[in-house]
Design a protein around this nucleic acid. Structure first.
Length: 277
DNA sequence: AGCCAGGGTCTGC
DNA sequence: GCAGACCATGGC
């Protein structure tokens, strides 16, 4: 990864990285693709507009200090994904998935936002998850920039009633969000401590929250805590496991099982659709 | 109309 | 421990 300032923008070269695949692969729900193919979004209260052309990413209106302290870690630009991809390619299906979806980087998202996002995700589809989260932030988050809202903090949400949540149209998930907010803001569950825990303890801790089961917990650990061995199993991954790994997922991949999972998820959902066309 | 969507809880065996 | 009903909502 190399970068340089160009006027008010920051220009970054990241070979192998795909901005679109990274932002549209289902790990995050708040980035919007504009008609010109660029993306606009907000993370930890920082608004951003960026685009990709070839191996070059342009972070508009971004200075070096914010890039180094926040955006480079957020997009995980310091990690060597080429060697991870090579490591995973020992298996034929993994190699195909890696070749197809290897441009995906695993973001370092905020744990609280990730927790809520994947509670909203249960028994739901990606477009509707995006809509729910968008309404949630518009209703309860601070306006930051034109049309962009911060993700509301747990303390704010803990003070809401189910009635307040109605406009979000989250269905049965609304009560889980309120339970999460109460347990986080009261300190009953400490999101900071989870960074220090191993996978199993971390999952146990997260599952103290109503509406957080194994799949949601693993998503939070992978996308919110950047634990690359977390392995979320949803309906799509179940199909992959049944079809390609009836004897179990290769143990050799377990160190990067979450990244493999993300490649497989994107591969099975989009590559097969393309083939059908 | 019925099924599915990045599931979890609760009940009954 | 494990299957099965049930849970809101929207797109197809």
């Amino acid at each position: 990864m190399e970068f340089r300032q160009q006027g008010q923008d920051l220009i970054v070269r990241v070979p192998g990285f795909s901005l679109r695949d990274t932002l549209c692969c289902g790990q995050c729900f708040r980035w919007e693709e504009l008609p010109d193919g660029s993306f606009r979004g907000i993370a930890k209260g920082h608004p951003l507009h960026l685009s990709q052309s070839g191996e070059t990413i342009t972070f508009y209106q971004t200075d070096e200090s914010l890039f180094c302290s926040f955006w480079a870690p957020y997009f995980d630009l310091e990690t060597d994904y080429q060697s991870i991809r090579q490591f995973l390619s020992f298996n034929k299906t993994l190699r195909l998935a890696e070749e197809y979806a290897g441009g995906i980087y695993i973001l370092r998202q905020d744990p609280w936002e990730t927790l809520c996002s994947f509670i909203f995700s249960q028994n739901n589809n990606i477009p509707r998850i995006r809509g729910i989260i968008s309404r949630f932030c518009e209703q309860f988050g601070e306006p930051i920039a034109d049309g962009l809202f911060a993700f509301p903090d747990a303390e704010r949400i803990a003070g809401l009633t189910l009635e307040d949540m109605a406009p979000v149209r989250a269905g049965f998930r609304a009560k889980y969000i309120l339970d999460a907010a109460k347990k986080i803001s009261s300190g009953e569950v400490d999101l900071e401590q989870i960074y220090l825990m191993n996978l199993q303890k971390a999952e146990e801790e997260l599952r103290k929250i109503n509406g957080v089961g194994p799949k949601v917990a693993q998503c939070i650990l992978l996308y919110g805590y950047h634990k690359p061995d977390a392995f979320p199993v949803d309906t799509w991954i179940k199909k992959v496991l049944a079809k390609y790994y009836p004897k179990g997922f290769p143990k050799r991949a377990s160190r990067y099982a979450g990244i493999a999972q993300q490649y497989l998820f994107h591969y099975i959902r989009t590559a097969e659709k393309e083939k059908a066309e």
